[in-house]
């Protein structure tokens, strides 16, 4: 393994760990969503709770996995391209 390959491996590993950290930071949801449900009390009927969808991006495990697979693919490609090419005379 040469220096370029090592750097590729480390960067890919850091990206994958970062993707997992981002996923956990967003609450560890399985699926990515663009809307979340909030509950509001009705002023006239205090017992009633009204559910309302608001636009909010939640990073899910599915997105982390897709980006991790892309990272592994690109990392593998670069790892292969950065291999030592031995000259055969």
């Amino acid at each position: 393994m040469n220096q370029k390959q090592k750097r590729t491996l480390i960067i890919a590993a850091v990206i994958i760990v970062a993707l997992l950290v981002i996923w956990i930071a967003f609450g560890g949801h399985i699926f990515t969503r663009t809307q979340v449900l909030i509950e509001k009390k009705d002023e006239l009927f205090p017992d009633m709770v009204q559910k309302e969808w608001v636009n909010k991006f939640i990073w899910g495990l599915d997105l982390s996995l897709v980006l991790s697979v892309i990272t592994i693919f690109i990392g593998s490609l670069l790892f292969y391209l950065f291999r030592d090419k031995k000259k055969i005379n």
């Binding site: 990515t32 663009t34 809307q35 449900l37 969808w53």
Partner: peptide
């Protein structure tokens, strides 16, 4: 019906 995920 809305579940917060368009695909779902």
């Amino acid at each position: 019906i809305n579940t917060g995920i368009e695909l779902r």
